[in-house]
Amino acid sequence: MQGSETKRGSYLIAIILIVIFWYILSVVVNSPALPPPNTVLLSLISQARTGLLEHFLISTYRVIYAISLALSLAVPAGLLSHERAIDRFVAPFLYLLYPIPHIVLLPLIILLFGIGDLSKIVLIALIIFFQILVTTRDAARNVSDYYVYSLLSLGANKRDVYRHVIFPACLPKVLTAMRISIGTAIAILFFAESFATTKGLGFIIMDAWSRADYSGLYAGIVSMALLGFILYIILERIEARVCRWV
């Protein structure tokens, strides 16, 4: 408990320092393109009354949907790479498709999934799918046979091996990959929400920008940072719970 107190304290200090730095920078720059934090805070509060929350929730929904989709495909595929025969089949696809900047597949995604929510979610999911798959696969291939033998000697079948050895042994690596993926997901979210939608934080930011509403623009940026921060905190809680053994 004492640990989480000091942690909260250090987060508070970081926030205060960022705000001070921001304030000084806005005074030095002295331009409407960088309003001081108090102006942005006021704009944030007034916008929260007029629909910012809805945009925030829609963006949250898109990111969480995309992460869940990517996880539910990448983790099983990565874990099964522990099977040499499966890995020999999967690895070439991975090495051929992973280096492509997947964002260029956007036209294809729109063709297949339309210009609605689904294509935005698929775009985010596609990119983080590869990030999670590559890490999970490496972890699964490196699970020592020693643990597998240890379990098999107790009469385990294949399913037991995945449940009691491969999955738990890879879980810390999967969570690390997710941490990286959250950053990527939010960046792609911004890109995906900057066209063909009137909903989401990406839209708010682009819209405010085009109207030269700078305090609105920064209110959107702060909201996006908040979204990422909340996801990190949730992930950290999960990690502390399931990776106590590391």
């Binding site: 020693y146 033998y149 240890s150 379990l151 098999l152 000697s153 042994a169 879980l171 053994w245």
Partner: peptide, 22 residues
């Protein structure tokens, strides 16, 4: 022949415990 070895228990070198299980 596994898994029909219900009468046999094996203790591996270096204990064979799973670090992720308490």
């Amino acid at each position: 022949r596994l898994p029909d070895m219900k009468d046999v228990a094996l203790i591996l070198q270096d204990y064979g415990l799973f670090p992720w299980k308490n």
